[in-house]
Nucleic acid binder design. Structure first.
Lengths: 141, 141
DNA sequence: GTAGTCCCTATAGTGACTAGAGGTTCAAGA
DNA sequence: TCTTGAACCTCTAGTCACTATAGGGACTAC
């Protein structure tokens, strides 16, 4: 109880500058300070930061997390909003998995057919140069 | 033959500012200009841009593409470098797919268990608040 | 000649941090 | 009590791969 930002960073495995950044954008409330202006945290901050960290690991963006946190702060509301956010994220993830599977197939083919000879015969280069490969939104953003 | 940047954008489905950006960072050579300083492109530029576009769709970053292009420009070298780049990218993609599958499972569970009641019983919020979920690097970067 | 579309450069903004400079505070040992 | 050195502070700028905006100039069709 009542520890420094470095200790919070160690406990949650979130880097110190990232914690300050979350405070700056309003995901974490400004904590009390020592006389010398150093931040002091307690159990609540640890839980809230763990929540944020886990949500980030699940790929929720900051705005989604902001919405989820405000739900958590008002536990008497309907959770249909949380449900909607999670469903949207699930759909994104499933789409991403499908894209990456297509991508893996193409990369595997490229690698398999590359005999590591000269570039002139290289399938990796050839495949990339072949403009017939149209597939929207494969790139990870 | 000999068309504007807008026409190149239409043919390759790469946006105009993106084309100028690729020129600025040296992926595309500076093209000839009209008297009024407008860019004029030909077949070579189209092929090179299609190569870049495809590589980006496959998730190669700009530096990898720079390396691949320089191989393409010198077709007498060994293509082991290209092979290595493609293999590294394949490994990344496979790791990413594994992470996303884990993620999907967790999201599916969250959504399934959310009865859309009050937030107090919401599994979405609960799951995120549960700090026992340690899994490294699930987040897409 | 003029309207309207396209093009030009240059700069700033995006998201989610990360790195650095330059200075201050804290905790532990002598 | 003093000193050392790690940890802390703020502020600014940089990352990646674009994207958007401002304020203008060029080109094409009528």
């Amino acid at each position: 109880m009542d520890f420094s930002i470095g200790e919070l960073a160690r406990r949650t495995e979130v880097k110190v500058p990232t914690i300050r950044y979350y405070e700056q954008i309003g995901l974490l409330p400004p904590p009390p300070r020592t006389e010398g202006q150093q931040r002091r945290y307690g159990k609540n901050a640890t839980a809230r930061l763990a929540f944020i960290k886990h949500a980030r690991e699940l790929g929720f963006d900051i705005e989604a997390i902001r919405a989820l946190l405000s739900l958590q702060d008002n536990p008497d509301q309907s959770c249909s909003v949380a449900d909607r956010i999670a469903k949207a994220r699930l759909a994104e993830v499933e789409e991403r998995i499908a894209s990456l599977n297509a991508l893996r197939t193409e990369l595997q083919r490229m690698v398999k057919e590359c005999a590591s000879g000269r570039v002139a015969e290289c399938r990796v280069i050839d495949t990339l140069a072949d403009s017939s490969h149209g597939h929207g939104r494969l790139v990870e953003t």
